[in-house]
């Protein structure tokens, strides 16, 4: 088989009712790409017949690959496995529960070809419960946008289209799928947002509940830290250290002006030293992070040339890989 143009990655966890329908819908939707696409179903340790049904379909359709996990790892590792094993230049990821509509894919691919590195779906007409799903998700999206500097309206939407060479270089684990646009912007990727259809669940239960609020908070803190790697981890830790530092300096003047008052001066001085200590500790950790990144195999500057645009030059020009794109990302959203 020649190299396909498009790889569609679908993580499946206990979706035996949906697999066949899912497959048929994707095939129908990708009629314009007939013969030039592949589908990767990633069986995320399902305890039902998902894998058997999927391999049954794969036996008749050589363009369907089924990746079988040894156990359940979660949505992000499943997508990571699909992305690692995809062979096309363009990768599409989507949910396995039929809530995303594959008919949106051709439009998103067209958008990507306009010159974007990632096109994310926006479920503007979301068919989910308001209190437990939509409102928490809206708050989370606001916060993610604020923290990462990439204001995507719907980070939770799994329907996304990527350039494979950019995506394959990104670290991708835990529940990172929420932060893909922000992470890719680290490498200077151009992000576009396209409205997509969204259906209510037909079969089965929703597998991801409300219990992840505190997880999202920790994840945000984590993302903020790793995003600082591209520039200066020390600066990010200095910013955290600023508060105890200022406080201890303030105390210094209190102590200095009040040296004769016995016990209270000793207590103020103790707290001064404790807070100063904390500030120093935090700054030291910043340097440790700098060291870790410096010695690690991850080199974000390798992504920069992939996303850089070269105009009016020869195609095979050697790009300056020291391109520091920071977190500023051209961002557009398409209405309608």
């Amino acid at each position: 088989m020649t190299k396909p143009e498009l790889s569609v990655v679908v993580p499946l966890y206990n979706e035996e009712d949906n697999v066949r329908l899912m497959f048929e819908r994707i095939v129908d939707a990708l009629e314009p790409f007939k013969g030039r696409f592949e589908i990767l179903f990633v069986n995320d340790g399902s305890r039902d017949k998902t894998f058997e049904i999927a391999s049954g379909i794969a036996a008749e359709n050589p363009f369907l690959k089924v990746v079988d996990f040894r156990r359940n790892y979660g949505q992000t590792p499943a997508m990571a496995a699909g992305i690692d094993n995809a062979t096309a230049e363009i990768i599409v990821t989507m949910d396995g529960d039929l809530q995303n509509d594959p008919s949106d894919i051709p439009d998103m691919v067209a958008k990507l070809r306009e010159g974007y590195d990632i096109v994310v779906g926006w479920r503007h007409n979301r068919q989910d419960k308001l209190i437990t799903r939509k409102i928490p998700s809206r708050i989370a999206n606001k916060m993610i946008g604020k923290v990462t500097g990439v204001p995507i309206k719907d980070n939770g939407c799994s329907l996304k289209v990527y350039r494979a060479d950019v995506m394959k270089k990104m670290p991708f684990y835990n529940e990172m799928h929420r932060f893909i646009p922000a992470l890719l912007s680290l490498g200077g990727a151009k992000v576009a947002e396209v409205k997509v259809k969204h259906h209510a669940r037909q079969f089965g239960e929703s597998k991801y509940g409300l219990s992840r609020v505190y997880k999202v908070l920790f994840d945000l803190l984590m993302i903020k830290t790793v995003l600082s790697l591209i520039s200066h981890p020390v600066r990010w830790f200095v910013r955290i250290a600023l508060l105890p530092l200022l406080f201890s300096l303030g105390l210094f003047f209190v102590v200095a002006g009040d040296i004769s008052s016995g016990d209270s001066a000793v207590i103020s001085a103790t707290i001064l030293i404790i807070l100063m200590n904390l500030a120093l500790f935090l700054v030291s950790l910043g340097f440790i992070c700098e060291l870790i990144y410096n010695k690690s195999p991850l080199d974000l500057s390798k992504i920069a040339p992939l996303t850089a645009r070269v105009d009016a030059f020869e195609q095979n020009i050697v790009l300056d890989s020291a391109d520091d794109t920071g977190t500023e990302t051209p961002h557009e959203s398409q209405k309608g």
Binding site: A54, S55, A58, A59, P62, F63, L64, K65, V66, V67, D68, F69, R70, R71, Y73, T76, P77, A78, A80, A81, D84, N85, K169, P171, F172, Y173, N174, L221, M222, T225, V226, L229, P233, F237, I240, F281, L282, L285, I288, C289, I292, Y293, S296, P297, L298
Partner: peptide, 30 residues
Amino acid sequence: LGAIGLVGETIIFTHAKNSRPYTIRKIVNG
């Protein structure tokens, strides 16, 4: 404690591409 956790996250993030977060039993058609 929180800051130490952040250092841990930095280590995981920078080495994530070398240690896969999953294990595959097999791949059908691939």
